[in-house]
Design a binder for these strands. Structure first.
Lengths: 213, 213
DNA sequence: TCAAAAGTGTTAATAGTACACCCATGA
DNA sequence: TCATGGGTGTACTATTAACACTTTTGA
């Protein structure tokens, strides 16, 4: 037996900040909250931790419910534990972000939940503390992308250097010099040219790259 | 009313990694776990979140119970949510670290709880996932001290540059060149000389500094 | 022929690293 | 007088930032 009986228990939710990259901008998947309190307000994708699953597994389950995706790059952001953060009942939320390829998920699932992509720089007011969560997650990916090739999770298999640069610019919220960017990327040795040429986005055509291994 | 009734609730604990700096080494305050499961095992300082307090407030309360200290520099580390992490019952733990001055807390309180300082590089095996927690927290302060003057929380009011350097070395786990260290610190402009001389730690005497404002 | 995106090097500034000797003092 | 920790500067290397023009091609 344990000595825990005298302590209170709490609902524990998981909120997922699902990032995607489309039309040159970093996007977040949001939907309308389907239940009270705050029904109809804009909300991150979330759910409650189940008794038999770890919090990490809960985040993976919720992501799969909304996207059909498994084995996605996810990281914990933080726990949010203010007493009144949910105006209905006390809920402690543990937040994760996920990076997905917007061309490669089950959009029927997200449609069922009325989810939509919104530009991270033009987020509407979300319910509760969800805007804070997005801001923090965005800072985290900004730090991470400086040292790890997490862009591979957001881009199509083949991509041009210009697209890759626009991803970095969108995540970091800065503009980057093209020559400096290309040099720093080539030094990092994450990507390799495929020999294929993309003719869609320019007349001249641009070399298509892919992430290594 | 809320729609949450069908979801399970969980015990939520807070574990505090209380860092101090003594005898040239970064230390952590640990004690023997006072209840089952794992009674008598070495453990971080922890407790359960109460119904009417935020998780942050819970961390502050626990810190105060063990040290008497208020208004301490604390940061959330992460939430730990594996199903079996506590072998007794399901407990989700939210971890914080705190930085305190070892000369300036109520050691009677820590004595009551049989707490003791151990070198972070010589930690015994702690219960559950507590060693993982310490490792992660230590990485965090290593990152933070590179850009923020958090040393002010760990050092006495007046300190020599040698002591400050030994703090950085202990946190980062590296040795630092004395001249390079002094240059980088003076560029950062965190500290100022007091004009006082410390005669304790050297024959010649060393200038005592303090953190600005 | 021109608009639009692709591609390509050099220089300057900054930050970080390596390295060795003299000083002041109390025991 | 000597052992101990205090204090100081310079050269090299690596990283980052600034900056502009030519190429290709489809419309």
């Amino acid at each position: 037996m344990t000595a825990y009986k005298s302590y209170p228990k709490f609902y524990v939710s998981v909120d997922c900040i699902i990032f995607g990259f489309a039309k040159g901008h970093l996007k977040v998947l949001i939907h309308q909250r389907p239940y009270e309190p705050g029904m109809g307000e804009q909300s991150l994708i979330g759910g409650f931790v189940q008794a038999d699953e770890s919090v990490d597994a809960s985040a993976r389950r919720i992501l799969k419910e909304f996207t059909g995706l498994d084995r996605v790059y996810m990281q914990q952001v933080a726990a949010y534990g203010e007493v009144e953060r949910d105006p209905g009942e006390r809920v402690i939320s543990i937040v994760y972000y996920a990076l997905i390829n917007v061309d490669n998920y089950d959009s029927q699932l997200s449609d069922i939940h009325n989810a939509r992509w919104v530009d991270v720089d033009q987020l509407p007011t979300l319910c509760f503390d969800h805007n804070d969560m997005v801001q923090k997650a965005r800072q985290m990916i900004g730090e991470t992308i400086k040292s790890e090739p997490i862009g591979s999770n957001l881009l199509p298999k083949y991509f041009t250097l210009s697209l890759l640069q626009s991803l970095y610019e969108s995540i970091l919220g800065t503009s980057i010099d093209k020559r400096n960017f290309r040099r720093s990327i080539s030094e990092k040795d994450y990507i390799k040219p495929t020999g294929m040429i993309d003719k869609e986005s320019s007349r001249r055509g641009a070399t298509l790259y892919q992430f290594k291994n």
